[in-house]
Design a protein around this nucleic acid. Structure first.
Length: 437
DNA sequence: CCTACAGCTAAGTGGCTGCT
DNA sequence: AGCAGCCACTTAGCTGTAGG
């Protein structure tokens, strides 16, 4: 793989508003400079005096220089199929890509930033081109001119490439640089809600996370934590719905047990609503932690959630709070009214549980935009997968399976409690298809 | 049973830096 | 000047544990 080290001088900082006055491209294989090319360019607007002073590039010099269009083809040829390397690569890449686009040429290159590579390799805080050159013993004959800067950047890159090789104990390949590539997915990772997988260099999934904005969230992981070090690729799934993202994340963590998802590797504690009859014949309700396979009247994934549920039932059925662990008062007399109401509530719960077992079909999630509909697929009350579709009804062919038997995450209950039951679509075809599997 | 509290993670905020 | 990455902090929500 070849690397094109690029430096551009411009009339300002924003592509589209400013334009290039000079460009240099230095081609390297990571070991030596193979090719170098440089040209002044006629900008589309005057050079501000401050910038002319900085770069030494004046109006007179560029007046006779070629328009970008005249050299665009050559630039595109030199850059395509190479990894685009620059100091603060998004700056140079932005200008070059924008200018090429104006000529109908669409550049889409992987990028490496020497500033980030430097910080990542040596843990340094400062990373200006001048600083990294002095730190790496690279001379820059004429800072702020394209070719000298590009050559200095290329030599610094070669030094770092060599150091990376020493550290790896083998010749580095392009993939090794990816973990220094903060923007590695800049083009690819969408600013959408979904689930992402951080994959190490041998292809093992190290971490599964969920994000409202994938592009933004994934970048944060490259800051310097262990995640940044081990990640060499990022995979992702767009879910459109945040609820669905939470559920898929959870199911994938249970399926894959990624090393860095330490917090979520243990099975979640479940809390259950339990009932028993006390010595005076009162039906008492209580919330307690559940054992691995213990079954309760209703199950929850946090104490708070269980307590809220119990409190709501106490209100709804006007139960005696003292018998429901919901009041500190200790009541020691027999309360027949409470018992009658409590039985009614327990009936409701067991009916609900029976209905749960019949539940086969699709639950529409409502936290998506209008373009896509997200559905959860249930079979006998168990979450078995999900589907995304644009218009129309969800069908078996859209089904993405999730590991069955995974404990239903507590978000699921939230979703049900916040969803209109009308959003549930029974689907006999789904049942038949799942039974066939 | 109940509360307080420390500790953890995900996610958001704001200041700093570096490119011309 | 405009912008993105970076980084240290803050905030919110949840958990386990200790002790009344």
């Amino acid at each position: 793989m070849l690397y094109a080290v690029v430096d551009v001088e411009t009339t300002g900082l924003k592509p589209g508003k400013a334009s290039m006055t000079e460009i240099a491209i230095v081609v390297t294989d990571g070991h030596s400079v193979l090719e170098r090319w440089c040209s002044l360019l006629k900008p589309t607007e005057p050079i501000p005096p401050d910038i002319a002073r900085l770069t030494g590039i004046t109006h007179e010099m560029v007046a006779v220089a070629p328009d970008f269009g005249a050299v665009a083809g050559r630039i595109f040829e030199m850059l395509k199929d190479k990894i685009f390397v620059a100091h603060h690569v998004e700056f140079d890449y932005g200008f070059v890509k924008e200018a090429l686009r104006g000529q109908g040429l669409h550049l889409r290159a992987e990028r490496v930033c020497t500033s980030r590579l430097f910080k990542g390799l040596y843990g340094e805080k400062r990373s200006s081109l001048a600083y990294i050159c002095s730190a790496l013993g690279v001379k820059n004959e004429r800072p702020h001119r394209a070719l000298p800067d590009a050559l200095a950047t290329a030599r610094a890159f070669i030094r770092m490439f060599g150091d990376l090789g020493k550290r790896l104990g083998r010749m580095p390949v392009a993939g090794d640089l990816k973990r220094f590539r903060l923007d590695g997915s800049g083009d690819e990772l969408p600013a959408a809600t979904g689930v992402y997988y951080l994959v190490n260099e041998v292809g093992t999934i190290e971490y599964v996370g969920k994000a409202k904005n994938l592009a933004q969230r994934v970048k944060q992981h490259f800051n310097d934590t262990e995640k940044g070090r081990v990640t060499s690729r990022v995979h992702w799934k767009v879910t459109y719905s945040e609820w669905l993202a939470l559920i898929v994340e959870d199911a994938e963590i249970q399926r894959l047990w990624p090393r860095l998802n330490s917090a979520q590797r243990k099975l979640p504690t479940r809390y259950g609503l339990l009932s028993y009859t006390d010595g005076r014949g009162n039906i008492r309700l209580a919330i307690d932690k559940l054992q691995k396979h213990q079954v309760a009247l209703a199950e929850f994934f946090s104490f708070q959630e269980a307590r809220q549920f119990l409190l709501s039932k106490v209100r709804q059925y006007e139960l005696n709070a003292s018998l429901c662990g919901a009041s500190p008062d200790r009541l020691t007399v027999y309360d027949e009214v409470h018992n009658t109401r409590c039985k009614a509530m327990l009936d409701e719960l067991s009916t609900a549980k029976k209905q749960d077992r019949d539940l086969t079909g699709w639950l529409r999630l409502t936290d998506t935009d209008d373009r896509v509909q997200a559905y959860l697929a249930f079979y006998s009350g168990l979450l078995v997968g999900y589907a995304l579709c644009r218009g129309g009804m969800p069908g078996v062919s859209y089904l993405h399976r999730l590991k069955p038997g995974v404990l239903t995450p507590y978000y699921l209950r939230m979703i049900f409690s916040q969803s209109d039951s009308k959003l549930f679509i029974r689907d006999a075809q789904l049942a038949a298809a799942l039974e066939a599997l």
